[in-house]
Design a protein around this nucleic acid. Structure first.
Lengths: 75, 75
DNA sequence: TAATTTGTGGCAGTATAATACCACAAATCA
DNA sequence: TGATTTGTGGTATTATACTGCCACAAATTA
């Protein structure tokens, strides 16, 4: 895996978590809005995975945002 | 894999290819600017892979754009 | 206190992204 | 024409994302 130095996964996970909490969504709520298991989302937020493109688009569905907004954070 | 219906990988690949060609970069040129093999980039452009987050950021380095711009296309 | 909600993390199995090569054909150029 | 550049695709191996489930503790609520 690349980009390990500046901990991309961690920044991404925190960004997702922030967006979710801003919307007052529980993991289980968000999971009902997309094709992801709530435990998956938890793992993503906690930087366990280097998520794939299709997963990013699912997260966007769950958060009602455009996918590109999910990459809008400082690395 | 999710999002199969609207062919996310294909749209993404075409978007990458367009950005690269707009910059007059050959695959081998672009590959020198990031931690990707030129044959990898070819496969991504041709929708062979559901790329990971870290790979998206590498592609962005190779194209001198912000990662979020790589998700800025219509699905 | 009791019941519910919430987040975390474990598990096993499957699919596939990533890596690092290389060969080849077609296009481009000298 | 001959040399170089360019894109495509093959291969074998390794790592890990994903799936779907579930148990648990802590926090929240009634």
């Amino acid at each position: 895996m690349k980009n390990d130095s500046f901990d991309l996964k961690e920044k991404f996970g925190l960004h997702i978590k922030r967006l979710r909490e801003d919307r007052g969504l529980a993991l289980r709520d968000m999971a009902t809005k997309c094709e992801l298991d709530y435990s998956q989302i938890s793992k993503i937020e906690n930087a366990k995975w280097d998520v794939q493109l299709s997963t990013i688009f699912e997260l966007a569905k769950g958060l009602d945002v455009e996918a590109k907004e999910l990459l809008d954070f400082k690395i």
